[in-house]
Nucleic acid binder design. Structure first.
Lengths: 146, 146
DNA sequence: CTCCGTGCAAAAGGTTTGCACTGGT
DNA sequence: ACCAGTGCAAACCTTTTGCACGGAG
């Protein structure tokens, strides 16, 4: 196993202890699988990754573990435009605020984000057609609710 | 009706004609509903918007019309992190390329996007915690496939 | 030992598909 | 008149929930 991987596993376990979160095989395995790939799998994709390493693990557990890892901040949920998603009738370039509490989306019109340089290098033939900046955070209603 | 709305409707109908896509009441109504709101509704939210204007319209049709409008390029699908989504084991700041053909996600590490200014104004108490840039386009495999 | 995490099964939610009918061109 | 679009119902797929058992602290 690569050093940086085992370092991250160790850091993960430390974090669990500090937060009094039991370290289970399932959690360690899901975490390790996820840091070992750069394919940004869906929940089901993660299940596919771990089901061979941990025969008998259930999808339910994978979903719960993923939620937990996101909550702990050791993995991230990615915005992905293909999924159960939102629609926008405004096709001018603009950007979005997304509240991690309620999921509400609001628009950001700010010229400073409208002329970002195009990404360069290692794009393997990917042709960029558009982009948008997604700001995540918490809205005032959700902040007050807690 | 506001002028810019009726202008957009007219432009929409022109585009349909140019692309030989029949203009149906359902398509016009969904499009008009979507350009009339800034709430970024989900598919079901769009259904809620139009079902009073067009009693009897089915959810199925709303889904199909939305797909069609996205295809035509007159509305957009928004990346939204709460939905059937992808996970990323890398919590360092980085950005993503998403192919609109196959949905594959790849990473972009580019320091030029790592220190964007925070959005200002009209945030209504929203506290920004993080952001990422999502580049959309088409990968070489999908481009060659067509 | 206690409590939280897990597995299973079932429910829920959202989206897609097959088929007959309707409506736009 | 023709073909694409629509409505309905059912299928499908992903995610969530309830409950009993088992393993981590």
């Amino acid at each position: 196993m690569h050093d940086h991987v085992s370092n991250r596993i160790r850091a993960f376990e430390d974090l669990c202890h500090r937060q009094s979160i039991p370290v289970t095989v399932q959690r360690r395995t899901v975490y390790e699988a996820l840091i070992g790939v750069t394919t940004h799998p869906s929940a089901d994709g993660v299940y596919e990754l771990v089901k061979d390493l941990l025969p008998g693990i259930s999808r339910t557990t994978v979903y719960r573990v993923l939620d937990r890892l996101v909550e702990m901040g050791v993995i991230r949920r990615l915005p992905h435009p293909s999924c159960a998603c939102r629609f926008d009738g405004n096709t001018q370039r603009h950007h979005h605020l997304v509240c991690r509490g309620c999921g509400e989306v609001s628009d950001v019109f700010d010229l400073r984000y409208d002329a970002l340089p195009m990404p360069t290098g290692r794009l393997s033939g990917f042709r960029v057609e558009d982009y948008s900046v997604v700001f995540t955070g918490i809205c005032s209603a959700c902040r007050n609710r807690n």
